[in-house]
Design a protein around this nucleic acid. Structure first.
Lengths: 361, 361
DNA sequence: GTGAAAGCGCTAACAT
DNA sequence: ATGTTAGCGCTTTCAC
């Protein structure tokens, strides 16, 4: 309900009456024709269209998408659920999603889950009530996610972002190969001369990606005849710099045969760990090397720039949306029924050199 | 249009038919009564409500908000336009907005403008077509913003976040006092012994906040009998670490009577500048002190932790939403017509000590 | 406390 | 190429 302007002389005031019916009336055409001018312009003659457009302009007509979406029985809204935007990985991903949706004429509805299952349920329900046609989402652990099972049961189309499709290959997903890319990262560490390398992970049990990256680490170690070391598992995704946590890290890196390199399962973690190491009087990469994972832009702003396994975050978002739309609109110009569109899209990762990795002390 | 589950035994499958009419039918009440159970439960007798609720449960009813919003003539959707989420300030602000909206039963629609006027126009139009009841937004420069003028002319309720309400006090806004808080920050620098202090700003002309913060800097300098120095104005909001830019900064901080302290108009800028200084072989705060502005969480993760003028970002978002809702729902339990609700809400800032500020070299 | 009826603004058959 | 006619699913007077 728009209030009228306080009688300013702005001609096209889209106050109440500017509906399609009135536009049609003003242009002396039927409601249907007026509608077509906006949705299927090719079905209406040039000059008729112009009359309608002009009437629309004079009345300050602005289509009411609520009406359109309700009637059309498909909202062209995509729901997006991300853990948080305060980790730049997901902010970058949103960027890609928004761009792609804009280009395709889809609307978006964003919610954040904070990795909280109860909140996930609530936020998914919210999206569903808004009648989203499908969703793009990242969950903590796809294999044991209640919401994904619910969506599967209800037949809601969705595409996972970052979570690598598992579930007997029955789920659509867009990600990098977490295991292989992590292995590549750790091999970079090994190539630099490190033998004692440890994983640092936040909220280990909760994240399927963290686990896959850990497996990649083990692959690398074993392939090079090295002994995988027990990981340091921090409670949060971002280090809380409490004295207790700092102390844990101190012990971890100063023990008799402490690791000379740390592979952090995400960049925020790596950044926090590097700071703590510095506070402990250790130099990075002088005393300890640190490798991150994610490739957030911020990493390159730091000094030394963060060495990391970079994911194409924008593209993950854009591709996830694209993949979803392809599912929602099967009839897009191809005659072939697209027999087996690959369900898990794996995008290439990149090793970003940075300067937090050096030879062992 | 939800597809049916592939015949899994999930009882409440919200397939097509689960509409309010059918719920009403199943509970042997009228459509009106069924509706009231969900929107005005106090108008319906206890046992009737229970019958309806049970029927709803059995049918797997999920209200279609599109229908509700269309009919109600108020969408209870708030549009949010932020410059980008890749700067954590705005991600944190979104956090506050989402929390507040969830608590109040409002829906949200997010768009990012990337500080691009053309995109701003387009994204605002998108929000308007979705019939948002109002908006929370941050623009580059409120005083010369085309979209704000448009919104004013159309009478769309909105509340600015971060932008300090100007326009003869006619606009609602939630922010800190940019000028006063900047002055306080610079006075902290002066108290540390600095005399030659410069402002570093990104995209100066484009940001009203950057200008206000610069004025606060001038206030502080003059109040202490110091000569304001010409600012270093970088092209982007985030430093692009091109050789040319690095060189500019090098000259700036190594000139004959170069500043001993730098006041950056936002934290991302400060972080980037600190990195560049380090690369130039300068120590922070040993050789140069750096003070940021924004108070993003990330700043405290760094080593040394960023000294900064902190804004309550979550709260700015939450309060902006609250302020908007107060405008949208004037009849909230108070008899008084709220004669002059303050239009510009100023929240307190805080000086975060950090460790990037020290005595001059 | 409950019901009947009238749309919100739009799209999509189906006619012509 | 254009018009006619039904609704999409819901809220909301207005009666009873």
């Amino acid at each position: 309900m728009r209030r009228n302007a306080t009688s300013l002389a702005a001609p096209p005031v889209p106050s109440n009456g500017a509906t399609l019916v009135n536009v049609a009336r003003a242009a002396s055409v039927s409601l249907a024709t007026a509608s077509r001018v906006f949705s299927n312009p090719e079905l209406v003659r040039q000059d008729t269209a112009e009359r309608v457009l002009q009437a629309a302009g004079e009345l300050g007509f602005r289509p009411n998408l609520l009406g359109a979406k309700l009637r059309a029985q498909r909202s062209r809204i995509v729901g997006v659920m991300l853990p948080t935007l305060e980790n730049a990985v997901f902010a970058e991903c949103w960027h890609g999603i928004e761009e792609a949706a804009l280009a395709q004429g889809y609307s978006l509805m964003l919610v954040t889950s904070r990795y909280d299952p109860a909140r996930e349920r609530e936020r998914i329900e919210y999206l569903l009530r808004h009648r989203v046609d499908g969703m793009v989402l990242t969950v903590a652990d796809a294999a044991r996610s209640a919401v994904l099972e619910q969506l599967d049961a209800e037949g809601v189309p969705y595409v996972l972002a970052y979570n690598q499709g598992a579930r007997r290959g029955k789920r659509y997903s867009v990600s990098v190969d977490n295991r292989v890319s992590a292995r590549a990262g750790v091999e970079r560490l090994i190539a630099a001369g490190h033998r004692r390398i440890s994983v640092v992970s936040g909220a280990f049990v909760a994240s399927d990606r963290a686990r896959l990256r850990h497996m990649g680490y083990q692959d690398a170690m074993r392939a090079h005849g090295l002994q995988p070391l027990p990981p340091l598992s921090l409670p949060a995704h971002t280090p809380t710099q409490t004295p207790a946590e700092v102390e844990r890290i101190r012990r971890f890196v100063t023990a008799p045969s402490a690791p000379t390199a740390l592979f952090c399962t995400n960049d925020m973690l790596a950044i926090g760990v590097i700071s703590i190491l510095k506070r402990l009087g250790l130099s990075v990469p002088g005393d300890v090397s640190v490798l991150g994972y994610d490739g957030i832009e911020l990493g390159q702003l730091l000094e030394p720039p963060l060495s990391t396994v970079a994911q194409p975050n924008n593209e993950i978002g854009a591709r996830a949306l694209g993949c979803l739309l392809a599912r929602l609109e099967p009839a897009s110009a191809r005659a072939a029924p697209a027999p087996r569109m690959p369900r898990a899209t794996l995008l290439p990762h990149a090793l970003r050199e940075g300067a937090t990795v050096g030879p062992p002390a």
